[in-house]
């Protein structure tokens, strides 16, 4: 018995090599082109969640310890500060409610319905790293919490990105700064529509397709850009970023325009999922 195993013919190894190489190539193409593998990935992500959880655990424990050990007076001070901030926000919200009602009434008069009351859920960013050339994060909410592919992810300041892979207990989010990500946006001041594309840098967006002519009337440094709602993946009118550089490029049909994302992309520990 032992001998038979040891003298396994050489071809067996080469044969297995070829089978598994073909299987890999098939998987790569299928994963790139088709959606069939989405379910497979969901379950595999569920399977590896314990590993992600274990990596995340010491970091979260450290945070918990630092909160537990922090000074009582500092905490009281912070609560006071938060209370004041809450008061301020409530005052602003009152005005917002009035505006919302008025807006709804006007929309009704115009006969164009507006989607209001989006559902929001908080998720935690897991301290795990993905392939380092891309800008992606992992969050601790998945299929079991109702997360779906292409769902928008925001923080308190602006749009962060969208869910690209859903696992049972965790999901992968592609940030708007990822080189693969394109987001339909609009300049608030002039209504100019464009696409905000990530360039892989931590804190830069490139605005595409803005022609050199008429730069002055359409867009300038300091302009706020918001989601335009085109493509229907992102809800309309969430802030995306601020224009920081407009350079006409006469060698190209389009100007080079850069923006700074509003959302705190790389330092967040909590994010919001929007339905």
């Amino acid at each position: 018995m032992k001998k038979a195993v040891f003298h396994r013919p050489k071809q067996a190894l080469s044969l297995r090599l070829i089978v598994f190489i073909l299987a890999s190539i098939f998987l790569i193409i299928a994963d790139h082109r088709l959606d069939y593998l989405r379910i497979v990935r969901t379950h595999l992500l569920g399977l590896v969640y314990p590993i992600q959880y274990l990596v995340n655990l010491p970091i979260k424990t450290g945070q918990w310890l630092s909160v537990t050990a922090s000074n009582r007076f500092l905490l009281i001070e912070e609560i006071d500060k938060l209370r004041a901030e809450k008061q301020l926000l409530q005052v602003t919200l009152q005005k917002f409610d009035a505006l919302k009602n008025e807006n709804e009434r006007l929309r009704r008069l115009l006969g164009s319905p507006l989607k209001v009351g989006e559902r929001v859920q908080m998720a935690e960013v897991l301290a795990v790293e993905l392939e380092h050339s891309r800008r992606k994060i992992t969050i601790n909410k998945g299929k079991n919490d109702g997360v779906i592919v292409n769902q928008a992810v925001i923080d308190g300041h602006g749009v962060m990105g969208q869910v690209i892979h859903v696992g049972l207990f965790s999901s992968t989010v592609m940030l708007i700064t990822d080189p693969e990500h394109e987001l339909p946006v609009q300049v608030v001041r002039t209504g100019l529509r464009t696409i905000a594309k990530g360039i892989g840098a931590v804190n830069r967006l490139s605005l595409l397709g803005i022609s050199n002519t008429g730069l002055n009337t359409g867009i300038k440094v300091g302009d706020l850009i918001v989601t335009s709602g085109a493509g229907e993946k992102f809800p309309k009118d969430y802030p995306v970023g601020t224009v920081i550089d407009v350079t006409p490029d006469i060698g190209q049909p389009f100007a080079s325009v850069q923006a700074l994302p509003r959302a705190v992309l790389e330092r967040n520990s909590e994010v919001l999922l929007v339905w």
Partner: peptide
């Protein structure tokens, strides 16, 4: 080879690369 393939698939899922890339 077989172990390597399964390990590669898990690695792909954890790194969010194309399924099969590390496996290959």
């Amino acid at each position: 080879v077989a172990t390597a393939w399964f390990v590669g698939i898990i690695h792909d899922v954890l790194n969010d690369t194309l399924l099969g890339q590390h496996a290959l």
